[in-house]
Amino acid sequence: TEIRININGVTIHVRDASEELKKLIEHLLRLGADEKEIREVLHRWEK
C-alpha cells in the first residue's frame, strides 16, 4: 500500500506501507506528531 501524509504543507510519501504502519501513523497524527517525529518513526520502522 502506498500512502502520502501531508503535515503542514510537507508531504511524506511512503511506499509499501503495511496496514499496521498506516494505523500507527494515523494514531501518531491524532496525537499531534509533527513531520520530524513521523519521519523518525518511519526511519526506525524500515530497519
Rank of each mutant, 00 (worst) to 15 (best):
E20S: 08
T1P: 07
E2H: 10
L29A: 04
E35T: 05
I25C: 01
R15D: 08
E40T: 12
L29I: 07
L29Q: 03
I7L: 10
K36Q: 11
K36F: 12
V41E: 06
T11Y: 11
R15S: 08
N8C: 04
A33H: 04
I38M: 04
H27G: 08
V10A: 08
R30Y: 12
G32Y: 03
R39C: 05
V10Y: 02
E37A: 13
R39Q: 06
R4L: 13
I12Y: 02
I3D: 03
E37C: 09
I12S: 02
R44G: 05
G9P: 02
L42K: 00
K23G: 12
R15Y: 14
L31R: 15
E26M: 15
K36T: 10
I3F: 10
H13Q: 07
E20Q: 08
V14R: 01
H13K: 08
L24R: 12
K23W: 14
L28Y: 10
E2G: 06
E37G: 07
E20V: 09
W45R: 03
E46Q: 15
K22H: 10
N8M: 06
K36Y: 12
H27C: 14
G9T: 05
E19D: 13
H13A: 07
V41W: 15
V10S: 07
R44N: 09
K22C: 03
L42H: 00
E20I: 05
A33C: 07
V10H: 11
V10N: 08
E37P: 00
H43C: 12
E46Y: 15
L24M: 12
W45F: 07
G9Q: 06
E19P: 12
R39N: 07
L28K: 06
E2M: 07
V14T: 03
T1R: 10
R4T: 11
E20L: 09
L29G: 01
I7D: 02
K47E: 14
R15V: 11
N6W: 03
E2K: 06
K23F: 14
I3L: 13
I3G: 03
A17K: 02
T1D: 09
L28M: 13
D34W: 03
L21K: 02
R30M: 06
S18R: 04
L29T: 03
R30H: 05
K23D: 09
E46G: 15
I5V: 08
A33I: 07
E46K: 15
D34S: 13
K22T: 13
E19V: 11
E19K: 08
T1Q: 12
E20W: 13
E20Y: 12
V14I: 10
K22E: 08
L24W: 10
H43S: 13
N6K: 11
W45N: 02
K23N: 12
R44D: 12
H43W: 14
I38E: 00
H13P: 05
G9D: 08
R44Y: 09
H27F: 15
N6R: 11
K23S: 12
R15K: 12
V14W: 08
E20K: 08
L31W: 09
V10M: 08
S18F: 03
N8K: 07
K36R: 09
E35D: 09
E37D: 09
I12L: 05
N6S: 11
V14K: 01
H43F: 12
L24K: 09
A33S: 05
E26H: 15
H43V: 09
W45P: 01
G9V: 02
I3T: 04
N8Y: 02
A33E: 01
A33Q: 03
N8D: 08
L21Y: 02
R4G: 06
E19G: 07
K22Q: 11
K36V: 10
H27V: 11
V41F: 15
L21V: 05
E26A: 15
L28A: 09
T1A: 10
L21R: 01
L42G: 00
N6I: 10
L42Q: 00
E37L: 13
N8L: 05
V41K: 03
I7C: 05
E20D: 10
T1M: 12
V14A: 03
L31P: 00
R15G: 06
K36E: 09
V14Y: 05
E37W: 13
V41L: 14
E26F: 15
K47F: 14
T11L: 13
T1I: 14
G32T: 02
K36L: 08
G9K: 04
L42C: 01
K22V: 12
S18V: 06
I5Q: 01
I5S: 01
E26S: 15
R4A: 12
V14H: 04
G32D: 02
I5E: 01
I38R: 00
I25L: 12
I3C: 04
I5H: 02
W45D: 02
E26T: 15
L21M: 05
D34N: 12
R30S: 08
D16K: 13
V41T: 13
N8S: 10
E35A: 09
R30L: 07
A17D: 04
I12G: 01
S18Q: 07
L28N: 01
I3K: 02
G9C: 03
A17W: 08
A17V: 09
L28G: 00
T1H: 14
I5C: 04
G32L: 02
I38H: 00
H27R: 14
V41S: 05
A17N: 04
R4Q: 12
L24D: 04
H43T: 11
E46W: 13
T11D: 05
K22N: 06
I12K: 01
K22M: 14
N6D: 09
I3Q: 02
I7Q: 04
K36S: 09
R4I: 11
A17R: 03
L31V: 07
K23P: 01
R39V: 05
V41C: 05
H43A: 13
R39L: 08
T11I: 11
K47H: 15
L42V: 11
E26Q: 15
R39F: 07
L21Q: 03
K23T: 13
E2T: 11
G32E: 03
K47Y: 13
G9N: 10
I38Y: 01
E37Q: 10
R4H: 12
R30V: 06
N6V: 12
D16R: 13
K36D: 09
H13F: 13
R15W: 14
V14Q: 03
R15E: 06
V14L: 08
E37K: 11
R39D: 15
I3R: 02
H27S: 13
D16P: 07
L31E: 04
E37M: 13
I38F: 06
L28Q: 03
R15P: 13
G9I: 03
L29R: 04
I25A: 01
K47D: 14
D34L: 08
R30F: 12
I25F: 03
L28D: 00
A17S: 05
T1N: 10
E35N: 03
V41H: 05
D16Y: 15
H27M: 14
K36P: 05
I25Y: 01
K47I: 15
D34C: 04
K23R: 11
I3Y: 09
S18Y: 03
S18M: 04
L21F: 07
L21C: 02
R39W: 06
N6Y: 10
E40M: 15
N8I: 03
E20P: 06
L24N: 06
L42M: 05
K47P: 11
E20F: 10
R44F: 09
E40Y: 14
T1W: 12
G32N: 05
V41P: 00
L42I: 13
E40A: 14
R39E: 05
W45L: 05
R30T: 06
K23V: 12
L29M: 11
L21N: 00
H13D: 05
A33F: 06
E19A: 11
S18P: 14
G9R: 04
I7V: 12
G9A: 04
K36G: 07
I5A: 02
W45Q: 02
D16H: 14
A33T: 08
E2Y: 03
N6T: 11
L24Q: 13
K22F: 15
L42R: 00
S18K: 05
K23L: 14
R30Q: 06
L31N: 06
L31H: 09
H43M: 14
W45E: 02
S18A: 08
D16E: 12
R30G: 04
A17C: 05
V10I: 10
N8H: 09
E35G: 05
I3P: 02
V14C: 05
D34K: 08
I5G: 01
H13E: 07
L31F: 09
T11F: 13
E40S: 10
R44C: 11
E35P: 07
R44H: 09
N8E: 05
G32I: 01
I12C: 03
E37F: 14
S18G: 07
L28V: 04
I38A: 00
R15M: 13
L29D: 00
L21T: 02
I38C: 01
E19Q: 10
I38K: 00
I12Q: 01
N6P: 06
L28R: 05
L24F: 13
L24P: 00
E20T: 11
W45S: 02
H27K: 13
E19L: 13
L24A: 11
E20C: 07
R15I: 10
H13R: 06
H13W: 07
E46S: 15
R15F: 14
I7R: 04
A17G: 08
V10G: 06
E26D: 10
I5W: 00
A17I: 09
E2F: 04
T1C: 07
I3W: 11
R4S: 13
G9S: 06
E35F: 12
L42Y: 01
E40N: 10
V14P: 02
E40H: 11
H27T: 15
K47L: 15
L29W: 10
G9H: 07
R44I: 08
I12T: 02
W45C: 09
W45Y: 06
E35H: 08
L21A: 02
I12P: 00
V41M: 14
R4P: 06
L29P: 00
L42A: 01
R39I: 07
G32M: 03
L31C: 04
D16N: 14
L29N: 01
R4E: 10
L29K: 02
T11M: 12
E26N: 14
T1K: 08
I7N: 03
L42T: 01
V14G: 02
